[in-house]
Simulated scan of single mutants.
Amino acid sequence: MRHVLVTGAGSGIGLEIARSFARLGDALTLVDLHAAPLEEAAAAALEAGAASATTIAADLRGPDAAEAVVAEAWAAAPVDVLVSSAGVYPATPFLELDATTWDLVLDINTRAPVLLAVALARRAIEAGRPASVVSISSGAALRARPGAAPYSTSKAALEAATRAAALELGPHGIRVNAVSPGFVEVGSAVNPVTDEYAAAVGDTPLGRRGRPDDIARAVVWIAGDEAAWITGEVLRVDGGSSTGAWHLPQHWTAIGQEEDAQA
């Protein structure tokens, strides 16, 4: 039985990640901004088979929040797996950006996962224990889109930090990876998307949009022993949408057809 700490566990992908670890009988500490959805998430985790499910309501924007969250979780039991799933993605046109919006996104999406990993690693190294860290990235780390300058930047930085952490923490037995979802339908009240946006980004080579369980299975796998020799990686779980611009039409005539046309 592992002790798994999951942020953003109150809804969406984070909630499904918590459920997936619960089905394995792990003990969970669930973190989110608001207490009410966390209590529902804890009940769902226990119903799914979690050994235990405790909750911490915390605002991860605070400079000391990550340390406080890990300290509280570790006091109950050493943490074996950290999953940073909490994130925000407001749409703000580039010319309307200000420091408040920029800092909000970077503080939650980049700084918090990094400082959570630091807080866990310090304790794990002192205790001589291995650990696994998984952060949730995004396809936006590779491809910008209108209104997502801070979000794309936050996820690109998170992926760089994942590699840097893996490099330094690997000798201590701490693996650090990221999972990068494509478009996943979560129905989030915190991060809503329009039907127009969903239709534009939700089509993939595999023919469907993502589901939270698609991401959760990848997280559980890369956090576990089956991925024991993997660190510093970004696992893209996106139905093939990052493979290229697959919606573009073919822009040349096949050679055989061209010859036939000229005959």
Rank of each mutant, 00 (worst) to 15 (best):
P93K: 12
T253E: 14
D32W: 11
D195S: 05
G202Y: 05
S132R: 00
S85E: 02
G182C: 06
V220R: 12
W102I: 11
S137L: 05
P249E: 06
A228C: 13
L106D: 01
T7A: 13
M1N: 13
G128K: 11
L60F: 07
A27S: 15
A66T: 08
V133F: 09
D203F: 04
A156V: 05
I255M: 06
G239V: 06
A140V: 06
A228P: 07
V31H: 10
S84P: 02
G10H: 12
R209A: 15
V234M: 08
Q262R: 14
R209E: 10
D203L: 11
G173L: 10
L30W: 11
G232A: 10
V220C: 12
A66Y: 03
A127S: 05
E226L: 13
L95A: 13
V83T: 09
Q262F: 09
V69L: 09
S138H: 02
T101A: 14
T253Y: 02
W74F: 12
A76C: 10
A73K: 02
A227G: 09
P171T: 11
L33N: 10
P192I: 03
G239L: 06
P192W: 10
I17T: 15
S241W: 04
G170W: 09
V133G: 07
D26M: 01
G207I: 06
I222W: 01
I13Q: 11
T153M: 10
V105T: 09
D26V: 00
I174Q: 00
D107H: 05
L24V: 00
D213K: 10
S20N: 10
P150W: 01
V193M: 06
D213I: 14
G14P: 08
G128L: 08
A50H: 05
R175I: 03
L28P: 04
P192V: 05
A73Q: 03
A42T: 06
F21V: 02
D103G: 07
A141K: 03
V201Q: 00
V31S: 12
P192C: 06
T231S: 15
V105R: 01
L115P: 00
I56C: 05
A41T: 07
A58E: 15
S20T: 15
A124W: 02
A131E: 00
V6S: 03
L95T: 13
V179R: 02
A22E: 11
N177S: 05
V105W: 00
E96G: 13
R111F: 02
I125Y: 01
L206D: 06
V237L: 12
V186S: 08
E226Q: 14
D64P: 07
N109Q: 04
A216M: 07
A227E: 08
A198P: 02
F21M: 07
S180T: 05
V186D: 03
E67W: 03
A166S: 11
T243A: 14
G62H: 13
L38P: 13
Q250D: 12
V179K: 03
V176Q: 01
R2A: 14
A65R: 02
P37I: 13
D64N: 11
V201D: 00
I222V: 15
V4N: 08
A178T: 04
P93S: 11
A76H: 14
